[in-house]
Each structure stands twice: as structure tokens, then as C-alpha cells.
Simulated assay, not measured.
Amino acid sequence: MLARTVHTLPEGPHWRYEPKWDGYRALAGREGAVSLTSRSGRPLQSAFRDVAAALESALPEGTAVDGEIVRWSPQGRLDFAALQRRGHAGPQAARRLARSEPCHYIVFDLLRADGAEVVAAALDERRARLEELMRRSTQPALMLGWQTSAPGVARQWYDQMWRVGVEGLVVKDGRGRYRPGRRDWLKYKRRVTTEAIVGGVIGAPAKPRELIVGRRDSQTGALRVVGRTGELEPGRRGEVGALLRPSAGDHPWPERLPSRWGSAQEYARVVPEVVVEITPDAATASGRWRHRVGYVRARPDRQPADVPPDLAIEG
């Protein structure tokens, strides 16, 4: 079951609110052997053998659940880069990483119990049965996902949990059934504004279509690529383009973008002196924002030295 984006938080007696975890969505079940699969059906047992072992111990025969595999860093933040390492590791590396970078499985829905499908039951009924199931579990790698019916509590989560990488809230109708593939859930994503330095553009510097933005590394001082905006509205391209100067060649970034920014492609490097206000979300990986950042406005009143380092939101 999937979610669609909303821009206001719905309120009412039937709404249930949950944190939107930044991890690998995974279905787990036990019909003889334990299965752990991605949303696309890819088997995940060998990559996340610690999670699979916990499920083997905790799930009764004939049970299926929905949840999210997450990795908490030693600093208490969700670490998506570690998940990617785990997800792409070979058998030997997977065994090593299961010890050095253990993961958790956050369970938030019950799909089958005692061999019978429960997807047609209301969410509130499925949740009550899931809570009973999780009360019997002693596995620290398995966590019951948080849920509240109180909008005030949900807003507190929304206002505070982005600091540890929670992307926002998922909002569900307590009366609703589980309908695979349907976007009947809602997602209310956290957006904050911060600043970054423009180091390159897609298109002409005078009227860029997209901005490639950077931050100073707090350890080395080097300017690193940390994000890429979506396509700028035509009326806003001149606003920032009027402030940009093409680089004369002395630039800290390569001539082509790395493949992780979409595809290895040429772009125009500019003198990294213009600060822009952006809206990243909480999802990060390998020292960069995983999703496109939103462009808010140019900040000619700010200097590059005023911009927070790394991926800090506040200076």
C-alpha cells in the first residue's frame, strides 16, 4: 500500500499518524521459512540476515507484516547510506556488515495472522492485533512503529524528528482496509529552509534550468556537491542567473557530474560565490541530500562563509 503527498495535515477522529521512516520498505512473512522482500519483490534475507534472524524468532507461522528496514547511526540518526551498503553487499560482506552496522525492522501493519489474510479488516483492528503480536516479541531488532490519533502529538513528531532523519508523517484512515498498490495513505513531508552555495548549473549560467549546490566540508574545508534542484520556473531563472559568473577554469568540481546525480553529464561550472535558499527534506545519503532540493530564492545578503557546513540545517 502506498501514499500520496498532501500539503496540509488532515485532522479528524478517524486519522492515525505515524512517522515517515527513511529506510527500505519491506514485507516480511513466515510460511515455513521466513521471507523478507522489497516493494518490487526482491529478496532481502541474505543482505539483512540480522533482521531475517529476528523475524525467524518472532513471527509465528502464517504471519505477514509490512514495515521498514532502518539503520540508526551511532549519532542516533537514520543512516540511509549504511542501508545501501547492506543492500548491495555480497554474502561475505553482508555477514560482516550485519555485525558492524546492525539494522532494525520497524513493523507498522499486519497483513496475515494464523494463516488468514486480514487486509480487509480496518486499520484499527489490524493495529490492535499487531500490538498484541509485538508484545510477545523479545527481539531488539524488531520495533513496533509509532502511531497516534492525537494531531498535537503528530505535530510534535513533525517539528522535532526531522533532526534524526524522519521525513515527515504518514497519515492513515483508521477505518481503512489494506489495499496493495493503492495510494490511500497520505504523506505529509517535512520541509525546512536552509542555504547552499551554487557551484554549477544545468543550462546557461545566465538562465539556468537547474542548480548544482554545495556545502563546505567541516573537516577539510573543501566545497562538496550536496544537492541538485528541480527545474526552475522560467520566471525565476533570470533572478539567480543575474548573480552567477561562469568559472574561468579554477574550480573544485569536475567537468562532468557523477552518475549518482542522474547521469554523467556536462554542466556549466560557476564561481562558487552565490548563496541560495533551498528546501531539502530529511533524506540523506553519503553526505548529500538524496532527493531534489527546492529552490526558494537567491540570498545576495548572505556570504558563502555564512552557509552551514556539511548538511547542517542551522549555522
Rank of each mutant, 00 (worst) to 15 (best):
M1F: 04
L2S: 00
R4Y: 03
R4K: 05
H7Y: 12
H7S: 13
H7C: 04
P10D: 04
P13C: 06
P13L: 12
H14P: 05
W15Y: 04
W15R: 04
R16P: 05
R16Y: 00
K20E: 05
W21E: 00
A26M: 01
G29L: 09
R30I: 07
R30D: 01
E31D: 11
A33P: 15
A33R: 15
A33Y: 09
L36T: 02
T37C: 08
T37P: 12
T37G: 09
T37H: 11
S40A: 14
G41D: 09
P43R: 12
L44T: 03
S46G: 06
F48P: 14
A53H: 14
A53K: 14
E56W: 07
S57P: 06
S57K: 15
P60W: 08
P60N: 09
P60R: 13
E61T: 13
V65P: 02
G67A: 08
Q75R: 15
L78T: 07
D79F: 15
D79G: 07
Q84M: 15
G87H: 15
Q92N: 13
R95M: 11
S100T: 15
E101P: 03
C103G: 03
H104N: 05
Y105D: 01
F108S: 00
F108H: 12
L111Q: 10
R112A: 10
G115P: 11
V119R: 13
A122S: 12
L133N: 03
M134L: 01
S137I: 04
T138R: 08
M143S: 01
M143P: 00
L144W: 02
S149K: 08
A154R: 06
W157Y: 05
Y158W: 10
Y158G: 00
V164Y: 13
G165A: 08
V166M: 12
E167W: 00
E167G: 10
G168L: 00
V170C: 01
G174I: 06
Y178R: 07
G181H: 03
R182A: 09
R183D: 03
Y188E: 05
V192R: 15
T193S: 14
T194G: 05
V201S: 01
P208Q: 06
E210W: 15
I212Q: 02
R216K: 11
D217V: 12
A222F: 04
A222G: 04
R224N: 06
G230D: 09
G230F: 13
L232K: 10
R236N: 10
R236C: 10
G238V: 01
V240T: 02
G241I: 09
R245T: 10
P246T: 07
A248D: 08
P252K: 06
E255N: 06
R256D: 05
L257T: 11
L257A: 11
R260E: 14
G262E: 03
S263D: 10
S263E: 13
Q265C: 12
E266P: 13
P272C: 07
E273F: 01
V276M: 06
I278L: 11
T284P: 04
T284Y: 08
A285I: 11
G287E: 04
W289M: 10
R290Q: 12
R290S: 01
R290T: 11
R299D: 06
R299T: 07
P300Y: 03
R302D: 03
R302W: 08
R302S: 12
P304L: 02
D306A: 00
V307K: 10
V307G: 03
P309S: 09
I313A: 05
E314D: 07
